[in-house]
Computed example of a mutant assay.
Amino acid sequence: MGEGLQEGRARRASGWFGMVVGVGVLLIVLGVWNALDGLTALFAGGFVVADAERVVALDVAAWGWVLLAIGVVEVIAGIALFIGAGWARVVAVLVAGLNGIVQLAFLAAYPVGAILIMVVAAVVIWTVVVHGDATRV
């Protein structure tokens, strides 16, 4: 039993423990941001057309529900990453991948923001896949 505890401490001492915890914090922040965006969209309602050539009309209320749901899932997964839950790693990869893919739709309208979010999603996916078990005790 003593060896298992020492292994857990050795894993926590690695530099990747902090990176995985940082990704968990990032997921929580993104989740809160998405939830707030979702609530704002629900209260605003209507449709948005950024440019007829770039972005198709978007039902803001429907998108608000999607953002709210994704935000809640991101917050829960971010918290669960702290304790090393295996399902949280799967959810984090899926949500980050989905978020990265969705940003392709907004690339023409918001290029800097979309590319930044895609890069962050790639970092989240890489960190969780390669070093996600650093928080397991």
Rank of each mutant, 00 (worst) to 15 (best):
A69R: 03
V91T: 09
W65Y: 15
L94Y: 01
V66F: 11
I70W: 04
A92R: 01
V73M: 13
G97W: 03
G78M: 00
A80L: 04
I83T: 14
V66W: 05
F82Y: 14
F82S: 11
A96F: 06
A62F: 04
L81R: 00
A77M: 00
W65A: 14
W63T: 14
A77R: 00
A69S: 12
G86T: 11
V73Y: 05
R89K: 13
F82N: 07
A88M: 10
G84M: 12
I70C: 11
L94W: 05
L81E: 00
A62R: 06
W63Q: 14
V72S: 13
V73L: 15
V93G: 06
A62N: 05
G86Y: 04
V91D: 01
V75W: 12
I76N: 07
A88P: 03
I79T: 12
A69H: 03
L67R: 10
W87F: 12
V90G: 09
E74L: 05
E74V: 00
G86F: 04
A85L: 08
V90L: 15
A88N: 10
A69F: 07
F82T: 11
G84V: 08
G86A: 11
A69T: 13
A88C: 13
V93W: 03
G64D: 10
A85N: 09
A77Q: 01
G71T: 05
V72W: 05
G97A: 12
G97V: 07
V95S: 02
A96L: 06
R89I: 06
A61C: 09
A88Y: 06
V91R: 00
